[in-house]
Amino acid sequence: MLNTLSVLEFKSSTFFAPILILFNKDIAAIEQALQEKINLAPEFFRDSPLIVDLRELNKQNQDVDFVQITEILRKIGFFPVGIRGGNEQQNKQAHSLSIPIDTVREQGSPIIIGETHKQENIKQSPSQPEVTTAKEPIRPAAIPPVSAAATLITHPIRSGQRIYAAGDLIIMSQVSAGAEIMAEGNIHVYNTLRGRALAGVHGNTAVRIFCFDLQAELISIAGDYKTSEDLNKQMYKKPVQIYLQDHALIIKEIA
């Protein structure tokens, strides 16, 4: 999996995220059960990335709408970052939500370009499966292989570095002031975003930027941008999602 070209390089490492295994397709019941779990350990689950495992449900032929599941998870405060064991329809839904699917890896996509020099290597890390023990219904375990549509980065992006992803870009570490992250798809930053973040750089207006702690120098979706000066002070240092509505950038706190 190593690419020895001097322009870029692929690396692999493991990225931990809880896996949510569903046994019942009743949305209300899921929401209630989740809320109970969260109440037990609010800090642990707050804004946690999550893999949704639908294998059990599909075994029982309980067909659930993945868009609904995603909506409810986001509403409660999770960040769904993967689906496994989904059927064709659910995988299609996941794909349209830019959520990576645990299937055979496709070739190609994640592209990372080093800062200003060709020689640069920026490490990137598609994850690898690993299993740990846990309680039901949420089992802490490792994320399944992220599909090639998403680029996962687990190390800090420092001032002067540039990252480009052909699909979605998921960053688990901080993005420093003076750094620039770009994606043709969505951008997720599960940490502080101080640099510049540009999503939908090929003009996709449906993509979003999610981050835990907004202190960005600039945010942009499909070319519509705001600089830190234009950012609403109330959103400063808040977990937010950013999307386009009628060519206006909407910044909303994730509560």
């Binding site: 800062e115 020689q119 640069e120 920026i122 190390h155 420092r158 001032s159 570095q161």
Partner: peptide, 11 residues
């Protein structure tokens, strides 16, 4: 220093 850290991790 942050800039230097970027270079340390890539060059």
């Amino acid at each position: 220093s942050d800039r230097m850290l970027g270079i340390l991790s890539s060059k």
